[in-house]
Design a protein around this nucleic acid. Structure first.
Length: 1040
RNA sequence: GGGCCCAUAGCUCAGUUGGUUAGAGCGCGUCGCUGAUAACGACGAGGUCGAUGGUUCAAAUCCAUCUGGGCCCA
């Protein structure tokens, strides 16, 4: 008969096991079957946020992917249907830049010369190349997601869906053309994305100037506003001065002139010696006119300008509270200008130089004009003060040229029009951690600005807008290639909807005159990913029903840097197109740091290669770190040391417990059966109670998306199981006790299912092995993978055995204290003692079985309740209870309790407080014991354990026998015997007491070390002699 | 400059609604235990719970300010 279980050595190569499991999943098609099996289940929809395929995967990608895998696996085991489709973000500047680097390009000119078709082909190739690296990482880490049907944002169907959605938005009147102030590199002549700007800040020394703006009318005509700016080059474009309505402004007399500025800033700007002559609020000043600092540009270009307006962005944190406005060069200025109907006057060309016809600074690079302008202001007496200061200013991250904020025509989605709707959708969204909802994300939504969609680039979804070259106001937005074909009068359904091919499609204007040509922009790559709920299906042109069924998602998960990225674009696109957000629950992860707490970056060279981590420690260990180590919401450190600890502490403890079970189950010929008897042994009942607690804790935690709480519960259980249940139950396993084997089997089997979503490899290996795979075989109807098994349910387990878990806690605390007592008394545990006495609340109610556990663990013959010979009663105050009753008097009462020398009578203690007797009872006092002298006693937290350390001859001999036994067991191990081998044993002893102990305890010795014979004498000479100097003993042994 | 988050032992992290001796693991030292374990147990060294102020009978916990770190944004 084959053993029930395949052999399971304690030592294991986890990465090798993972390879085996990967092959098995592939061969058995487990992922697909897990979806089929749940096909009738309630859908639980997950959306994969597409990683940008612009480089090789890093360890931080493993983090998000571990979470993307965990909850779908969990929900699948609970019977939900969780379709999972991979996706790849293929477009965008990151891809373009990677290709430019490969090709050695430095500017858009290089690309145009190379050819857009060729360049985009290279981008496509680059994206595909990196996709395969991501796919390999995805598979290796055990992230189950359908890679074969992955959506790609560059696929024609995907692009067509995006077009359709943009047309929908256009039809709602929310897609409009406008000017936008963007960060712009004047050397490369391109606008930059926010992401690029963020990595290009450099420290600069810039001017800091206070300029007089004399008021010509209004309440304070004649006085000069003090206006502060750090960009003198924008002063020729000055259009207005912004104030904040509610801020108090003052007119002060200073050095013979009248100046105007915010009251809060008088001290900072002018010092103490100035007299305030009048006060007004910003609202009173709005509408006043002033003389502008330069008239290098014709005044009529500005229209109704040079007046005071309101600006939300004005603060009194810095400057003067009077803000110079140059709408062509500042996003906020631009916004205010739009509301105020101010013109945008821009004297700077696209190359960053002042236009040649501008007096004084014509032809100068914008920043280089600062000194000239400052000099002129000083010469004309307009300058109040000129200083310089150091601050960080954005530079082009490629050529280090200072950026200019520059207004360019661009297409916008008017998200501000649906701001309230977005806020409402956010209210209905569950964020993990919750603070993101109204913090980082919500606060940002509140300040939503229109979505600048255009990119003056090449590799992206082309903006599907065709415009009449004869009449720019006539535009057609196209929702599909078929639609475009209809306009153009040809079949374009097979056209590649990318540049330059779509650029070539023109058609006569519907109005009759002119030709419709595509607006050359491509769109922001974030829009692509935000459109994935429908675009992954090609909906509505294809799979409309599939899309409907899978919208919105119940679950998405990314790292926190996606707050304004995908989390926003997904919610915004959904709300724009379908009037509702695309997701209900969103898990937002912290970032990964290296072992020293620094952010991982290629620049620092502290990137960890995920494949290397997988082959060194195993994907299970890396996943466990991501999912359960520390708080996923908070930044965390990743390093080899942590991973080694996880392997040892979590995975190997789990593995070895299973290995132990298999060893003894096979030795006993035991196999699991459905009709196992009800557990009766106290250890079994306890273990199953703990298991039940673990199942309910892990389930609740995962329902709440709290993987680390679930992980802690699992680790605690595994530790209890291995280091208490197994440790205390070893003898029953040696004896092949079916109840113990059944209990342990159940615990390991169940915890395997709980862990399966975390560590899918080791759990699958062990779970199927414990079902009989490789041994007696899987029973009919048993899934051939843990991932096809149902989630454990509490109702499958026996009821928590009333109070047993807390009773066992007490037992373990008593044992702990007993060991401590042993250590303090210097009597080692192997030496049996006659009795231990215990004093502890609740100890009296422990039943005999539990007392036996204590006795055995402490190696004493009896455990007794301590009387007054061991301890004296002590009364301590319980502050929590006293505080409720006595409030401010609490310390006084507490002192009275501590000072009390009386013992409580029937649990009631009477103390005198302020001359009056006060009765304390119940939980107001804590009765504890302190040990008396003369015993080996230790006390802690109200518990005391004492040991009777008197040694009789009998006890001494028993101790000696244990030493002999220990020595024989050691020898068995040295000689390489199997744990179940029966042996023949010969011995000679030079010490009389050792000899006596062996002679008197031969039966015990034989049973304990599985000896079929114990003979006094040298034994066969060919066997190696095993001597012990301490015991004066030499033995020989062989397998019987 | 703004918003948000974080700060507990050398390291990684727990710490429920505020309750008086702040815990665990790793690492280190000593001792012990071992018939699964790369284990396990006891003891020890190691903490002004980032700082200051406040609320309270009572603060690691609540509030304010500050410092340091991080992310996002200007």
């Amino acid at each position: 008969m084959s053993p029930s279980f395949a052999p399971l050595p304690a030592s294991v190569d986890l990465p090798a096991v993972e390879q085996e499991i990967l092959e098995r999943w592939d061969k058995r098609d487990v992922f697909r079957r897990s979806l089929e099996q749940t096909a009738q289940g309630e859908p639980w929809i997950f959306y994969e946020g597409p990683p940008t395929a612009n480089g090789t995967p890093g360890t931080h990608h493993v983090e998000a992917r571990a979470f993307k895998d965990l909850f779908p696996r969990f929900k699948t085991m609970r019977g939900y249907h969780v379709p999972r489709r991979a996706g790849w973000d293929c477009h965008g500047l990151p891809v373009e830049l990677a290709v430019e680097k490969e090709l050695g390009f430095t500017s858009k000119g290089d690309i145009e010369r190379y050819g857009i078709a060729e360049f985009n082909a290279a981008c496509r190739e680059s994206a595909l190349r990196n996709v395969s690296a991501f796919a390999a990482m995805t598979e290796r880490m055990g992230y189950w997601v359908d890679l074969d049907e992955a959506y790609m944002t560059m696929a024609p169907r995907y692009v067509e869906s995006v077009w359709w959605s943009l047309k929908t938005i256009f039809d709602k009147g929310l897609l409009v053309e406008d000017h936008r102030v963007t960060p712009y590199c004047p050397r490369d002549e391109t606008p930059l994305s926010d992401h690029e700007v963020a990595q290009g800040y450099e420290d600069d020394v810039d001017p800091s100037v206070y300029v007089r703006f004399p008021l010509t009318d209004g309440p304070w005509a004649g006085a000069s506003m003090l206006v502060w700016t750090t960009t003198p080059w924008t002063l020729p474009s000055n259009t207005a001065v912004a104030v904040e309505r509610s801020v108090v402004y003052v007119r002060v007399h200073h050095d013979g002139e009248d100046l105007v500025l915010a009251e809060d800033l008088v001290g900072t700007v002018l010092g103490e010696q100035s007299t305030v002559e009048a006060r007004l609020t910003g609202a009173d000043l709005i509408g006043s006119h002033y003389t502008r600092p330069f008239d290098l540009l014709a005044a009529d270009r500005f229209g109704d300008a040079f007046r005071i307006v309101h600006g939300d962005h004005v603060t009194t944190d810095a400057g003067t509270g009077l803000v110079h406005m140059a709408p062509a060069f500042g996003a906020e200025d631009h916004l205010v200008a739009k509301n105020e109907g101010l013109e945008m006057v821009n004297p700077i060309g696209s190359n960053g130089h002042f236009l040649a016809d501008v007096p004084l600074v014509g032809g100068m690079f914008f920043k280089a004009a600062d000194p000239t302008l400052i000099e002129d202001l000083i010469a004309r007496g307009v300058m109040f003060r000129a200083e310089s200061y150091e601050h960080s200013y954005p530079h082009c991250w490629r050529c280090h040229t200072p950026l200019i904020y520059y207004a360019l025509p661009s297409w916008f989605i008017r998200t501000t029009a649906i701001r309230e709707k977005l806020l409402a959708e956010n209210e209905g969204t569950n964020w993990y951690p919750p603070h993101i909802k109204h913090g980082r994300y919500g606060a940002w939504l509140e300040n939503n600005v229109d979505w600048a969609l255009s990119r003056k680039r090449y590799w992206g979804t082309p903006l599907p807008i065709w415009r009449n070259d004869a009449d720019p106001s006539e535009v057609v937005v196209v929702g599909s290639l078929a639609e475009l074909g209809q306009h153009a009068g040809q079949d374009l359904t097979e056209l590649d909807p990318h540049r330059p091919y779509v650029d070539d499609i023109t058609f006569p204007a519907p109005s009759g005159t002119g030709t419709m040509r595509r607006v050359p922009d491509v769109i922001d790559v974030w829009y692509d990913s935000g459109a994935m709920p429908f675009a992954q299906w090609g909906a509505p042109h294809h799979h409309e029903a599939d899309f409907e069924q899978a919208y919105p998602a119940q679950y998405i998960c990314e790292a926190i840097d996606q707050t304004r990225g995908w989390f926003y674009s997904l919610m915004a696109v959904g709300t724009l197109v379908f009037d509702r957000s695309s997701y209900e629950n969103v898990v937002c992860l912290g970032l990964l740091l290296d072992e020293h707490g620094r952010k991982m970056s290629k620049h620092l060279g502290n990137i960890l290669d995920p494949f290397e981590l997988f082959s060194t420690h195993g994907a299970d260990a890396v996943r466990w770190l991501m999912l359960a180590q520390g708080s996923p919401w908070v930044d965390r450190r990743v390093g080899h040391e942590t991973l080694r600890e996880i392997v040892r502490k979590v995975l190997l403890t789990y593995w070895n417990t299973a290995s132990f079970l298999v060893t003894y189950a096979n030795a006993a010929g035991w196999s699991p059966s459905a009709d196992a008897p009800e557990p009766t042994h106290v250890m079994d009942r306890w273990a199953l109670g703990e298991l039940q607690g673990c199942v309910s804790e892990v389930t609740a935690a995962l329902d709440d998306f709290d993987s680390s709480r679930a992980g802690r519960a699992i680790v605690a259980f595994i530790d209890d199981l291995s280091n208490w249940y197994v440790r205390r139950s070893r003898r029953r396993f040696w004896d092949g006790d079916p109840a113990a084997l059944a209990t342990l089997h159940r615990c390991v089997e169940t915890v395997s299912r709980l862990m399966a979503p975390f560590t899918p490899f080791a759990t699958d290996y062990l779970w199927t092995l414990l079902q009989g795979e490789g041994g007696s075989g899987l029973p009919e109807g048993t899934p051939d993978s843990v991932h096809l098994a149902p989630w454990p349910s509490i109702s499958d387990l026996p009821d928590d055995d009333g109070g047993l878990r807390s009773a066992m806690d007490l037992v373990r605390r008593v044992v702990e204290l007993g060991r401590s007592t042993r250590a303090a008394s210097g009597v080692r545990t192997r030496q049996p003692l006659s009795r231990a006495v215990v004093s502890a609340p609740g100890f009296a109610s422990l039943d005999a079985e539990l007392l036996a556990e204590i006795a055995e663990e402490l190696n004493v013959a009896r455990v007794e309740t301590a009387g007054s010979e061991l301890v004296q009663l002590d009364v301590k105050p319980n502050y929590r209870a006293l505080g409720k009753r006595f409030g401010k008097q609490t310390p006084t009462v507490a002192d009275a309790v501590k000072a009390s020398t009386d013992a409580p009578v029937d649990g009631v203690l009477t103390v005198t407080v302020d001359g009056a007797p006060v009765e304390l009872s119940g939980d107001e006092i804590v009765i504890s014991e302190t040990p008396r002298e003369g015993w080996a006693v230790r006390s802690e937290g109200g518990l005391s354990v004492g040991l009777d350390t008197e040694l009789t001859d009998e006890l001494r001999e028993a101790g000696l026998l244990r030493d002999v036994l220990r020595f024989v067991q050691d020898a068995r191990k040295r000689l390489g015997f199997e744990v179940s081998d029966r042996i023949e044993l010969w011995w000679t002893a030079g010490r009389a007491d050792t000899a006596a102990a062996i002679r008197n305890g031969a039966d015990t010795l034989a049973t304990e070390c599985l000896a079929v014979s114990i003979s006094e004498g040298e034994g066969p000479a060919e066997l190696s002699a095993q001597p012990s100097e301490d015991l004066g003993l030499t033995i020989r042994a062989r397998v019987a």
